[in-house]
Amino acid sequence: MARKKPIQFVHNGSDKAVFVDEGENLLDVLRRGVGDLTPKYGCGQGTCGACTVIIDGAPRLACLTLAETIEGQSVETVAGLAGGQLSPVQEAFMAHFAAQCGYCTSGMLMSATALLRDNPRPTRDEVVEAISGNLCRCTGYEAIIAAVMTASGQQAA
């Protein structure tokens, strides 16, 4: 029997304890261990950004994060973004039609959320830079950029 390792971390504000395999990545642990299906598998090699989560305040790729390294850290996903109501970023994504198939949206939202916490009034270039690790095959990005600008209380154009 393969040896499992216990880890404990904060998942969207709640304590979680899980057993992980050696070398298991955080994406699999979140999806199959914790049951949080909001981070998505798009490439498994850190190129698409669909699995982006926020770890201790910084956007990180769950597929490239070894689960055992997050011991004691805080992991945030889209599942924790909306309290009683949608967050401003989520609202802005809706208003700007910034999602089509929806598969990149979770990762986009986490990259955008991390940006706006750090830099509440980013320039357009800073928005582009912040989502540059998140691929979207549907929208052509403009709607997403406009949504992030709107969420920061600035003109979308």
Partner: peptide, 23 residues
């Protein structure tokens, strides 16, 4: 005129059920 997609709330909350989202 713009009409909201019926699946948009699911998309922005990460709850749209893709095939792999069934445990």
């Amino acid at each position: 005129k713009p009409t909201q997609r019926q699946d948009m709330v699911g998309h922005v909350t990460g709850r749209s059920p893709f095939y792999d989202d069934h445990l």
